[in-house]
C-alpha cells in the first residue's frame, strides 16, 4: 500500500536555512544540504525547500541549492518560492529538483500551470496555496501570505488540478507558525475537492497534529517545519507514533526506529 508521507520543510534565504514564524521572525540554522542529508538519514519521505529570498539576483543560489542537493541526497525534493516563469522552472528541474512549487506566479498567470505541466509533466508541478479563513470558506493569499486575492481556495485548487498540477501544497495562514494543528476543515475540504495528492501544511506542533492531518484532514502527506527543525521530535519518532496508530508509513526493514534522540540532532539553537 502507498504510504502517507512525512515532509520536513526547510525555509531558505540567501542559501541558508531559516525557520519562519508566521513568515516573519527568522532564525538562522545552517546549510540546507547538510540539513537535507540529516533528514534523509532520519527517514524523511521527501523534502521541501521554500526559498524566501526576496531579491531576484539571488535566484541563482536556489538553482545551486537544487544541484548540490541532487548530488548528495537520494530522495525526492521540491523547490518553491519566488519562481516566476518557465525559465526558472526549467533551470531548477534541470539542476536536479524532482518538483517545483508555484504560488504567486500561478495565481498571477494560471496558464503557467498548464504550460509547465505540459512541458515537464504533471508530477513535477506542485501548486502551493496559502489559504486564510473567511466567511463561508477560505481565501487565497499570495506573496508569502501578504496579499489577498479574493479567490476561493477550493475553486482555485480545482482549477490548479484541471490545469495539470500534480499536487497541492496547502498552507493554512491562520495556523501557520501557531503550532496549534492544521486547519483540518480546510485540509479535508480541499482533499475531497481534488483527485491529486494534498500536502497539509501550517500549524503542526505535535505528533498528534500529524495524525489528524492524515486521518481527519485526509491529506496524503503532512509537512512540518518547526517541530522537526528545532528537534521537538525526530522524523523517526513521528513515524513510530503514526505507525502505532495504524497509519501506513514507510519504515525501512533496516531502520530501527529511534527510542531516543540522535546525538547529532541538537543544534545549538537553544530551543
Amino acid at each position: 500500500m502507498l504510504a502517507k508521507r512525512i515532509i520536513p520543510c526547510l525555509d531558505v534565504k540567501d542559501g541558508r536555512v531559516v525557520k519562519g514564524v508566521n513568515f516573519i521572525d527568522l532564525r538562522d540554522a545552517g546549510d540546507p544540504v547538510e540539513q537535507a542529508k540529516f533528514y534523509e538519514t532520519e527517514g524523511a519521505d521527501e523534502l521541501v525547500f521554500l526559498d524566501i529570498t526576496a531579491s531576484t539576483e539571488e535566484r541563482k543560489t536556489i538553482v545551486e541549492l537544487a544541484r548540490r542537493t541532487a548530488d548528495q541526497v537520494f530522495m525526492p525534493f521540491t523547490i518553491g518560492g519566488g519562481i516566476r516563469g518557465i525559465d526558472d522552472i526549467r533551470a531548477i528541474l534541470k539542476a536536479g529538483a524532482d518538483k517545483i512549487s508555484i504560488n504567486t506566479s500561478a495565481v498571477r498567470d494560471p496558464e503557467l500551470i498548464s504550460r509547465s505541466a505540459a512541458r515537464f509533466g504533471n508530477q513535477c508541478i506542485v501548486v502551493a496555496i496559502d489559504a486564510k479563513r473567511r466567511k463561508g470558506g477560505w481565501e487565497v493569499f499570495t506573496h508569502g501570505g501578504r496579499i489577498p486575492t479574493g479567490r476561493d481556495a477550493v475553486g482555485w485548487a480545482r482549477e490548479a488540478e484541471e490545469r495539470g498540477a500534480g499536487e497541492i501544497l496547502l498552507t493554512s495562514m491562520d495556523r501557520d507558525g501557531t503550532l496549534s494543528g492544521y486547519d483540518l476543515d480546510l485540509t479535508r475540504t480541499i482533499s475531497r475537492a481534488v483527485n491529486i495528492p494534498v500536502i497539509a501544511s501550517g500549524g503542526a506542533g505535535t505528533l498528534e497534529h500529524l495524525y489528524q492531518g492524515i486521518v481527519q484532514g485526509e491529506a496524503q502527506a503532512v509537512l512540518a517545519a518547526s517541530i522537526f527543525h528545532f528537534r521537538t521530535y525526530s522524523i523517526g519518532e513521528a513515524k513510530a507514533y503514526l505507525k502505532e496508530r495504524g497509519v501506513m508509513i514507510r519504515t525501512s526493514p533496516h531502520t530501527i526506529l529511534p527510542k531516543q534522540k540522535s546525538i547529532t540532532s541538537r543544534p545549538g539553537s537553544g530551543s
Binding site: 504510504a3 519521505d45 504533471n122 483527485n195 514507510r250
Partner: peptide, 11 residues
C-alpha cells in the same frame, strides 16, 4: 485506484 499518478513510497 483513486489518485493518479501513483506517487510516493510503496512496497
Amino acid at each position: 485506484v483513486g489518485i493518479i499518478p501513483h506517487m510516493g513510497w510503496n512496497q
